[in-house]
Each structure stands twice: as C-alpha cells, then as structure tokens.
Write a protein that binds this DNA or RNA. Structure first.
Length: 509
RNA sequence: GCGCCGCUAGCUCAAUUGGCAGAGCAACUGACUCUUAAUCAGUAGGUUCGGGGUUCGAUUCCCUGGCGGCGCACCA
C-alpha cells in the first residue's frame, strides 16, 4: 500500500511495526477465555458473598478477551475497559505486577485493539469489579480508530450517555460494523430482531405449521402489486424475476396437501426507498387450510401479541413517544365504513367520476387512468390511514384491490380481507384465499387489462397457478406480516434502515 | 422522480458582513501506581464533498454534479 495515510493511520501502522519488531504477533490465532465479562463480574460477586476473597481482596482468576473501549493511563499504572459480547469489564495494569518491559509495551495498545488478559478479579475503591492484569496479549491490532465518542453511565438510570458519539446517519448505515462496534444499543436492536423472528417461528412451529422455502428467482412474479427486479439467466437465456411475494408458491403447497405452511424470507420490490421501504425486506407469510380470514385474524392477534409479550413483557409498547396497546381484541373497522365516514357519503354508491372529484379536491396526484379500486385505495390512504395509530384491523376491502382474495360471503363489492395498521402504517395483510380457479382467471384477466392500460404493478396471469387451483385448493386463510416494520415498532426505531443491518444506499463517492 | 436541509480534522461541532480554518474528545510528547467523560502541561493533525464561476480574497455568494436526511409521490 503506497497510498497517503493520515497521521492517525500512520501512527497505528508504526505501532504495528513496533509490535512485530518486539516479536509480538499482532493478529493472534485464538484466545481461550475462562469467562466473558458479565460472567467474570457475576463470579466475583458470588465469591464476595461467600467471603472467599484473599487478604488482598482478590477473588477468582479470569481470562477475558475483548475490545479496548477506554484507556486511562496513570504513569506506572493504567485503567482500561474491555468490551465483549456480554458487556464491559475494567482492567487494571500495574508496572510492578507486569514488569517494566511488559508494562512499557502497553504504549503500543490503542483504543479499538482486541486484547486477551488474565489475572485475579478484585473490587476497586470506587466499587467496580476489575481484572488485576498479570498477563496480557494483543489479539488484534486495530489500524483505524473507531468513531468512539466518550461515554459515561448515568448513575441514576444506568443508561449510557454519549459525549460526541458517532451519529452521522450516512456513515452509520454505510459502516454498520463501526456503528455496531461503538453502539451496544444498536447491537441490541438486532438481537431483538432475531428474537422476534425466532418467536414467530416458535409460535407457528408449535401450531403445526411447516416451514418451507420457495424460489426467490422466479420465471413469473406475482402475489402482490409491485414492480419486480428483472434479471437474466444466461444458459436458459430467459428473463427471471426476483420474487415480490411468495404467496402463489405457498398456496401451491396447500394444493399439494401441506395444510399449514409458512416462510420467512426476503421479498424484492423495485420501488422507492424511504423511512418505511427498503427494496429488499423481510416478510412472514403463512397459510392455513380449512381456515377463513376470521380465523387468520385471530391467529394474527395471537401471533403479534406473543411477539410483543416476548419483547416487552406485556401487551404495550411505546413508539416515538406514543403508547400502543396490543391487548386483545384489537380494534377493527370496516374499510367502507371508515372511508364513508371520512367522505361523508357511502363510497359503494359513488361513481368513479364522483370519487375522482373527491380525490382531485384533495390534490391527490397520479389519478391518470385510475380505476375505482385505485381511487378508493388512495382516498383511504389519505383520509383514514393516518388516524390508525393504535393497532387496528381494517376489514373487507374493495374487490378491485384484491385479485387473490375471495369475494365476501355476504357483502357485495368487497372481499374477505383485513389489514393490520399501527402508527398509520400497514403491518399485516390477510384474506380468505380465492380458490375458485374460474374466478381467479377472471381476476387475472382484469389485472391484465389494468396492465395494458399502463399499471406497472398489475398482476400477471399465472397459468401454472391456475392449473394448481384447478386441481383443488381447500378453503384457506393466508397472512403476510412485514417483519421489518414490526421490529421498528418493537425497538422504537424511526427508520426501516435502523432495523436492517445493511440497507440499500446509493454508491459511495 | 420533485421540494427543503445538510456535507469543515479520526468523532462531535464552531467560524460575525466574503477577510489568517478553530474547539472538545481521539492521537502524539511529557508528568502521574485505585482511575472511570481521569487530571495537568505541550505538540501535531485540513482537497472545508467534487467541478466551474464571481471577487484583491470564497467554508461563506452563484452555477453544476455527488452522497445523505426529512417531506411529497409510489409502495408493504
């Protein structure tokens, strides 16, 4: 490397060379730990309670490894903090313990280095459990300073208070490794995310659902209204699509005789990026034979309730200062009722022209060629959605919006469908699945007409799916849950990028 | 895609009307053997996001491009 290095980077390289010169391996092969920091602290506390400390106050010995996150030199002694996956532990180095030469080598240690240390545990005068370091080794020399601001622990709340923390949003997303390295609470968000997914699995597994994997690379996309990513398979010499939903494949499996199936996977939608949308996102879909959307509503209530309970310990959570209650039963409103109330007249009896007048009055753009379904959807989005702060099921959507849902058994013009909203955004979507292949073909044809008219998100006609339905799909309820958004709520994060480890960004430079 | 805001040292941020580009932390040198945002003294560190323009002089004003945030639109 001949690139010009900043003074800071040059300095780290110099220390690396010095370590090598002293015969110290700066990138070790491993380190056997006796404790992580939390276990070491716990074991010392237990020894203290058992009054088994020696005359100098030393308790059990520990070998701990971690990243140096703070350093306070005092001439012939030094304090440091080492952070590992379980937390932090203080280190105490003394020249009279380590010897002049070995203590001197500590000058080559920087914040950010990974160290392994060993020595007895003791409690300092100020009460902190600390390793009295008798031996130490460099595990990894850090060649680039971490963006680590100073921080202290608030004695009142126990929370970490940052002073000049690493907070440039762009850098945090681009260099997630650095964000995670200096923000334990960012790591906690992703631990929670993993727990949410694990609990969804546990809930469904326990209820007899089979986890399956369906293609991400598809010859034809479907199952949602969205623009796909298109790619090309060279040896087959044909276009392939990244899935926008796994719905149609999961229902094929119900046709095949798997009565309860689910998949937690990434969908890809070729659309804009904002606070609530990443082009690649995680969706849970599950399908249950012999069930209708009312059964699925109960399932969603129980599933979400279970996840909220696991993370918060109760049925409530706070998002952006707003208290949300997921206590069952959740509120429910009829799509048409809610929209009718907002419009001041019954949307079912309104003509397309009348709807368009109302939409125009609200300055809704993109009305060009919009059909009845799209108009209702847009009006609902503007007039009703923002008010759905507490978790609410919106029931029975217009048929034009839902080409894969069964028509309502008693209400004309609508389908058996619900969406779960909270904080004004959609969390889940479900219906009594349309299993009449003749009706399904008509719905596909209607979508094809919309597509011809210029709707880039219109559904394609999937002949293979129709063939599957012709074999016969039992009555089935299906649900999709936006996992990222649920995690946003549960971790109180303002942007979907805060719950996706490596969100989509434009190229650097 | 459109609008608004932002981009200055490793990190967080200043810089008056257009007038020598600064501070805290990190780093470096020195002092200090129970500190914890350690302390004290000193030192160094800059393509002010890129390109162009106006001007005696641009971090500052204008044009243009890049990236990000927020809002709108689209969507789950």
């Amino acid at each position: 490397m001949t690139e010009e290095l900043s003074q800071t980077l040059r300095d780290r390289r110099w220390k690396l060379d010095e370590l090598l010169r002293l015969g110290i391996r700066p990138f070790e092969y491993g380190f056997e730990r006796s404790h992580d920091s939390a276990a070491a602290i716990a074991e010392f506390a237990a020894a203290e309670d058992g009054e088994s400390l020696d005359a100098d106050g030393n308790g059990p010995r520990a070998r701990v490894g971690g990243r140096v996150v703070a350093w306070r030199g005092h001439g012939k002694s030094a304090f440091a903090h080492l952070e590992d996956g379980s937390g932090r532990i203080q280190l105490y180095f003394r020249q009279d313990v380590l010897g002049e030469e070995r203590f001197g080598v500590l000058d080559l240690v920087d914040i950010g280095d990974w160290l392994g240390v060993e020595g007895p545990l003791f409690r300092t005068r100020t009460g902190e459990v600390t390793v009295r370091v008798e031996a130490w080794t460099v595990l990894t020399k850090s060649l680039r300073p971490l963006p680590l601001g100073k921080s202290e622990v608030d004695p009142e709340s126990g929370e970490r208070v940052y002073h000049a923390a690493f907070k440039d949003t762009e850098s945090r997303y681009r260099q997630r490794y650095a964000d995670l390295a200096v923000h334990p609470e960012a790591r906690e968000v992703f631990r929670t995310r993993a727990r949410v997914v694990a609990e969804m699995r546990a809930f469904l597994d326990k209820d007899g659902f089979l986890e399956v994997e369906t293609p991400a690379l598809q010859p034809m996309y479907g199952g949602a209204a969205a623009r796909p990513f298109i790619t090309h398979h060279h040896s087959l010499d044909r276009a392939m699509y990244l899935r926008i939903a796994d719905e149609l494949y999961l229902k094929r499996l119900v046709v095949g005789g798997f009565e309860r199936v689910y998949e937690i996977t990434h969908d890809f939608r070729n659309e804009g990026v904002d606070r609530l949308h990443n082009p690649e996102f995680t969706m849970l879909e599950f399908y249950q034979a012999f069930a209708d959307y009312r059964d699925m509503l109960e399932q969603v209530e129980r599933l979400i309730g279970h996840v909220v309970e696991t993370v918060t310990g109760g049925s409530d959570l706070t998002y952006r200062g707003e208290r949300l209650s997921f206590a069952r039963p959740l509120a429910r409103v009829q799509f048409m009722d809610a929209l009718g109330k907002a419009l001041g007249s019954d949307p079912m009896t309104m003509t397309v022209t009348e709807l368009k007048v109302r939409a125009t009055a609200l300055h809704l753009p993109e009305l060009e060629g919009a059909g009845r379904g799209k108009l209702l959807d847009k009006l609902f989005g503007v007039l009703v959605e923002p008010s759905l702060v507490q978790p609410t099921f919106v029931m029975d959507h217009p048929i034009e919006l839902s080409p894969l849902a069964k028509t309502h058994r008693s209400e004309p013009g609508v389908v058996e469908r619900f969406e779960l909203y909270a904080m004004g955004t959609e969390l889940a979507n479900a219906f009594s699945e349309l299993n009449d292949p003749l009706d399904q073909r008509e719905r596909f044809e209607a979508q094809r007409a919309l597509g011809v008219a210029g709707d880039a998100e219109a559904h394609q006609v999937d002949e293979d799916y129709l063939r599957a339905l012709e074999y016969g799909m039992p009555p089935t309820g299906g649900v999709g849950v936006g996992v990222d958004r649920l995690v946003m709520l549960l971790t109180d994060q303002p942007s979907i990028r805060d719950v996706i480890l490596f969100p989509v960004l434009r190229e650097e430079d």
